[in-house]
């Protein structure tokens, strides 16, 4: 495993700038997730590290070595794509063993067998080693694809939304497994996704990408609690952060220049109305473990989480106040 560093990387395709002056270091053994919508430059970043694209400007280093002249095969990276690409004529075992059989590796048959079985156990596909890869479910195929990257011990794993084609339950299980495998192996891993839950739950650090630019880099807690601007604040949190004009809800101490207030559940306090009500419960989403209260205040709609046993119903008048919310200026930057 190795440290991977991008310095002032830019890449354009014709008129469109896919990556703009990106500087990012993924430390040895670190799990970094790049989060952004489609077209933010996530996949291009991975392809630049893998050597599948050449940067217009800037430098990629892996383990301190400049990769400028290095072909993809010489970079010692393992790539997991969004769409699993297995060899359909081979068994699960053979698919996993394939990367180890490269003549350049010179591993003994015993060593290959040991690694294949170890990784198959990790990704929980060891009961289907003799199955043809075409006889697997989507989730199983993707586990084989991830396993095929894991049998090698490259400098860095590059993963491009590897869980996005799986159903919700399996995705939840694999998130936990992937994070655990990565920390057990001490792997350096760069993972890109548009799913905030994946980013929050797996990353040591999250990089928020927008329009080819790295907007903020930090631990999930930093990004969630201390977003640098409105764009970042809106990327994390469920329900979505409430962005409301200054002055709408009482409480808090907005610094001068505050235009917008960002209020998550933990920034909103609900009290019984008792004649001082300023808001109304519009409707309630009962999600079981918790409820989403949809509130209406002076024509604005807000959503906040509540304990499912909170005794409120649609039409109830309540008093809503702010507690240490986030403040943003007219340019969208955070004010502290």
């Amino acid at each position: 495993m190795a440290e991977v560093s991008l310095q002032n990387i830019s890449k354009s395709f014709g008129e469109s700038k896919a990556v703009r002056n990106l500087t990012l270091t993924i430390r040895d053994g670190e799990f970094v997730v790049l989060l952004g919508p489609t077209g933010a430059g996530k996949t291009t970043t991975l392809r630049l590290i893998a050597g599948l694209e050449k940067p217009d400007t800037g430098r990629v280093t892996i383990g301190g070595q400049d990769m400028a002249g290095a072909a993809p095969a010489g970079r010692d990276v393992a790539f997991v794509f969004q769409q699993y690409s297995l060899y359909p004529h081979l068994t699960v075992y053979e698919n996993l063993a394939f990367p180890l059989r490269s003549p350049a590796r010179r591993l003994s048959a015993d060593e290959i067998d040991r690694r294949v079985r170890e990784v198959a156990r990790m990704v929980r596909i060891d009961h289907k080693l003799e199955n043809r890869s075409t006889r697997l479910s989507g989730g199983e195929m993707q586990r084989v694809a991830i396993g095929r990257a894991l049998v090698r011990k490259p400098s860095i794993y590059l993963m491009d939304e590897p869980l996005s084609s799986l159903d919700a339950k399996l995705r939840g299980e694999l998130r936990l497994e992937l994070k655990r495998i990565q920390s057990e192996l001490g792997s350096t891993l760069l993972y890109v996704t548009h799913d905030q839950i994946e980013a929050m739950t797996m990353a040591d650090r999250i990089g928020i990408l927008n329009d080819g630019e790295l907007i903020q880099l930090g631990t999930p807690r930093e990004i969630y609690s201390n977003p640098v601007n409105l764009h970042v604040a809106a990327r994390l949190g469920q329900p979505h952060i409430n962005l409301i004009p200054e002055g709408l809800v009482p409480g808090g101490q907005p610094p001068s220049g505050t235009k917008t207030i960002g209020a998550r559940t933990e920034h909103l306090e609900i009290h019984a109305g008792n004649g001082t009500a300023n808001a109304e419960i519009d409707w309630i989403e009962h999600l079981g473990d918790q409820s989403h209260l949809h509130l209406r205040i002076a024509g604005h709609k807000l959503v906040t989480l509540a304990n499912p046993y909170v005794p409120v119903k649609p039409g109830d008048k309540i008093k809503l106040t702010l507690k240490d919310p986030l403040y943003f200026g007219s340019d969208g930057q955070r004010l502290v």
Binding site: R175, L176, K179, M200, T201, R221, Y224, G237, G288, D289
Partner: peptide, 26 residues
């Protein structure tokens, strides 16, 4: 038992070891 109906209490006899934690903000 639903996940939100489990609480951590060091004096409880039902014990286990942490396998992983998934941070979700709130």
């Amino acid at each position: 038992v639903r996940p939100e109906h489990i609480r951590f209490n060091d004096s409880s006899i039902l014990r286990g070891s942490v396998y992983g934690a998934e941070y979700l903000g709130t």
